[in-house]
Design a protein around this nucleic acid. Structure first.
Lengths: 246, 246
DNA sequence: TCGGCTAGTTGGACTAGTCCAGATGGGTGA
DNA sequence: TCACCCATCTGGACTAGTCCAACTAGCCGA
């Protein structure tokens, strides 16, 4: 029988059915953005299946960015994505507010470190170069969605650590040091949450993330800093406009 | 005891240990790009755990793009990523070959369709507008890494379906119709494989993918087409350079 | 030599649980 | 009133299997 059916027509798996069913409820607005889903145990009972199977369906919806997790707290319906054009030099707060949403920033850590191998390579530094590391968590409508590690050249930013680091670094660069962005390079790639990132965003280890590594140069082409951004992947869509023809 | 330990120092989970162990072997070059990993059963025995736990570790490595899956065939070590700048107007083949790798293209389907709701919205079309749909699979060093659906305005491309669609559509546009790209818009977001996409790339349902939706305008700002690209997320890194200051 | 069959292996899908750590909220005592 | 404690609930981590469909490789016969 099944050999004559295209894979489309075959009876969908339980995981697919559960995913479909939850998606429908979300699309119909019965499950609204930010709402908590019933517990995994309650859902698995309602769908007459085991927790493992149910969790697989939730994992698919998670990689699609329709729902998100908070470690040991539960599953929630994802709010609309923030539209993020990495090329605009505007800072996080301005970008968020221009889309009618609220932004806050929290500093987790700020201090000198020694560059690791990956950073030396990306930034073209000598081995064991000193750097300033600033770790921040940024939230969208009171939900933590972005963890950033900034790595700055210490010689260009004397006294920076004493300033208020919760506001835009871009503005500090410009106003206090007269340094503005020129060309930047962005590497975008999906990855999984580990260690510090997972803890900062309240994610379980292995949860999907969108990583953006930006390398910023000033107007003269000299390196300013390197930012490692880790976004909850349901919270953002990268939208880029190519240049119109000259 | 554990209450005084930071989460970093705590004994890592089995999943984390297995992930770590496999990653090390890959980094050391003992498991080389393209090589198949031992079967799930063999690995779960070797790590003295169950298949489910083992699969979870593999899933994390998959979302990190260190390994990839072929449905019912097994797990393989991911080759280096292709560097993809969506803003360069160069076509797939040229981009791949400029990085010293081999590209091929296969046409799965080509014909007229009626635009669905999502396409009407993205392309700004009237409901039920007619479109030409071309589905292609593109491979990198003989591995299928990209599934693309092109949706074109039929009135701009009479007779297109009779041409050789395995080569660059960009070139066909230019050489046969005198149409060149102007500004384009890209939406990049991680998603999960379903239906046609999963089948075309030999992925299991729910596998992580990187979706890029591009909307192409011509030099006069008129719509040319909309491409829905689905990349195996281990196969590519998006690298974008912002414009230098004027 | 080559096509087709077949047995064995692989991943896919799923069941039915256990034990634990962290988050939550209600109640209690200062 | 408010801080703290504790019972309860949640997800996290893991075990030990079963059944099935699809892929594979090797054998066999034309």
């Amino acid at each position: 029988m099944s050999q004559w059916m295209s894979p489309d027509e075959r009876q969908p798996t339980q995981v697919a059915q559960i995913r479909q069913s939850l998606q429908e409820q979300i699309r119909a607005g019965l499950l609204r953005p930010g709402m908590r889903l019933p517990s995994e145990r309650a859902l698995s009972e309602r769908f007459a299946t085991t927790r493992i199977t149910l969790k697989e369906a939730l994992a698919v919806l998670e990689t699609e960015g329709q729902i998100y997790r908070e470690e040991r707290r539960g599953w929630f319906v994802a709010p609309p994505r923030l539209i993020y054009d990495p090329r605009t030099k505007s800072h996080f707060q301005a970008m968020v507010e221009s889309q009618g949403r609220a932004a806050t920033t929290r500093v987790l850590q700020a201090g000198p470190v020694v560059a690791n191998a990956e950073l030396c390579q990306r930034m073209g530094l000598a081995p064991l170069s000193p750097l300033l590391k600033i770790c921040r968590v940024r939230s969208l409508d009171s939900r933590d969605v972005l963890y950033v590690e900034h790595y700055l050249l210490p010689e260009r930013f004397p006294g920076l650590l004493e300033m208020d680091l919760t506001c835009s670094l871009t503005r500090l660069y410009a106003e206090r040091y007269g340094i503005g962005y020129g060309q930047s390079t962005f590497d975008i790639l999906p990855t999984a949450a580990h260690g510090a990132v997972a803890r900062a965003l309240g994610l379980p280890q292995g949860a999907p993330l969108l990583q953006i590594c930006r390398l910023n140069l000033d107007g003269q082409g000299r390196l300013i800093d390197c930012d490692m951004e880790y976004w909850r992947q349901d919270a953002v869509v990268i939208r880029i406009q190519s240049d119109p023809l000259p």
